[in-house]
Write a protein that binds this DNA or RNA. Structure first.
Length: 420
RNA sequence: GUGGGCGUAGCUCAGCUGGUAGAGCACUCGGUUGUGGUCCGAGAUGUCGCGGGUUCGAGCCCCGUCGCUCACCCCA
């Protein structure tokens, strides 16, 4: 009987040893600064009511219009695998009334997200993000803190070849004024049909077109940054001032476009230089109307999402991955059935004392077991045979120099604790 | 969704103008009784992604299909 192999679904990212250790390191490092700043965990479902995203993220976005994994569950409800994190956080905040307490509410999340795109370097159908949201206070100092936390995450990985781009999308008045002039400008540009359709939904998208002829055509287009209301401009300037104070370098990019409709005010992106086409390793911004749209009170918020997969790719590209895999302190080699029982109980005792202990399983030749011990990178090895069980004494071998020391089994824990 | 490249042992790949498969690494065992790293020897492993076609004969040619990959697009 021969069964066909089953493959992973197209375009998913997954991490097995030895890479998984680096993945875990990247994920934990990216979110560590947020924990230090008092952000608290929000653990949310990976699927939500489809309406949450179509309404929250925006019907006009590519993410919602053609990249969602949407299906009907057994109760006939329309369900969607979450394509991003912010909408879900808002839903939970509203549902649990967390916005009724002291503000800002500061939370973080980590997990997988889903987008049905054509896979590519650094672009997956299931990918990992960590993110934070600071909800309920519109203060440029929080904007700066959120950006600083993201930046610190990348810095703690040892990343250097990335840049931070920021801009402001202003308030509603600013955007309305700009839109009028931008549409007027676009009318004079010769566009193909898909591009024209995109422009009709959100004219800002044209700034993001990578084709040289489009870049040239948009060269003299009016910039939103020049249309900011006095209030928005002052706010943006204050954010920049704080970033300067923190010594965080940034480039103001007035042509930056974010893919999700809810962004307003301060928006930012982290771009890595060594990555290929999918170079965005993180991004975020302020979202003034989101909470209200989702049926909550009218509160502003700001947050970011950082791409764990891409940050890992970036760390590899820069050669800053730390190679340390798990290595045990002690490797026990039992010889014979009875000795296995001794090894198992001994290992349990030692592990409870915090000593990383592995056992050679199977009935392999001693030479093979020693090889396995060597490969495991274990610091010490003991062999437990009949003699050792009888005498209660083992030879503790230090792998670095091969030296042997006689130690009572009952005192192994103490001996190791002192030696390690 | 559109286009380019690629699919041969666990991994990285070789395979000349078509004659039914190899290397290195890894793995297993051994080099005399219970002690690893080096060295030496031996061994196991593939329906050559899958399905058709052309041919006396296909890993090599043709078609289809699936997958991977890169770019457009989009974004983390």
């Amino acid at each position: 009987m021969k069964y066909e192999k089953i493959q992973a679904p197209k375009g998913v990212s997954e991490y097995a040893p030895p890479l998984s250790a680096a993945f875990e390191w990247v994920r934990e490092s990216l979110i560590a600064p947020a924990k230090l700043a008092g952000y608290q965990l929000m653990e949310l479902p990976v699927f939500e009511d489809t309406a949450l995203f179509s309404r929250g993220v925006g019907e006009s976005t590519d993410v919602v219009s053609k990249e969602m994994y949407t299906f009907e569950d057994r109760g006939g409800r329309s369900i969607t695998l979450r394509p991003e994190g912010t909408a879900g956080v808002m839903r939970a905040v509203i549902e649990k009334g967390l916005d009724r307490g002291q503000l800002p509410l500061k939370v973080w999340y980590s997990g997988q997200f889903f987008r049905a795109e054509r896979p590519q370097a650094g672009r997956y159908r299931q990918f990992y993000q960590v993110g934070i949201e600071a909800i309920g206070l519109d203060d440029p100092a929080i904007d700066a803190e959120v950006i600083a936390i993201a930046d610190q995450g990348f810095k703690s990985l040892g990343l250097r070849n990335y840049r931070l781009e920021i801009t402001s999308l202003g308030d509603a008045k600013s955007r309305a004024a700009h839109r009028v002039d931008l549409l007027k400008y676009i009318e004079k540009v010769d566009l193909d049909e898909p591009t024209r359709a995109r422009a009709a939904i959100n004219p800002l998208r044209l700034f993001d077109d990578k084709r040289p002829e489009m870049k040239a055509a948009m060269q003299d287009a009016p910039l939103l940054l020049d249309y900011l209301s006095a209030e928005s401009l002052a706010n943006f300037n204050q954010v920049k001032k704080y970033l300067d104070l923190l010594g965080i370098k940034y480039i103001v990019n007035p042509r930056m476009v974010r893919g999700l409709d809810y962004y307003t005010g301060t928006t930012f992106e982290f771009i890595h230089e060594d990555l290929g086409a999918q170079s965005g390793i993180g991004g975020g911004g302020r979202y003034d109307g989101l909470m209200e749209i989702l049926g909550g009170q009218s509160l502003s918020g700001i947050g970011f999402g950082l791409g764990v997969d891409r940050a890992l790719l970036a760390a590899q590209a820069e050669g800053v991955i730390s190679e340390d895999q798990f290595t045990s302190d002690l490797f026990i080699i039992p010889l014979g059935e009875e000795q296995k029982s001794v090894a198992l109980t001994l290992a349990t005792t030692l592990r409870n004392a915090g000593i990383r202990t592995e056992i050679a399983f199977g009935d392999r030749a001693l030479k093979a077991a020693m090889k396995a011990a060597d490969k495991s990178g274990s610091s010490y090895v003991v062999i437990i045979g009949e003699d050792e069980v009888a005498s209660g004494v083992v030879e503790l071998k230090r792998m670095s120099d091969g030296s042997l020391t006689s130690v009572k089994i009952s005192e192994l824990q103490k001996a190791l604790a002192g030696a390690l």
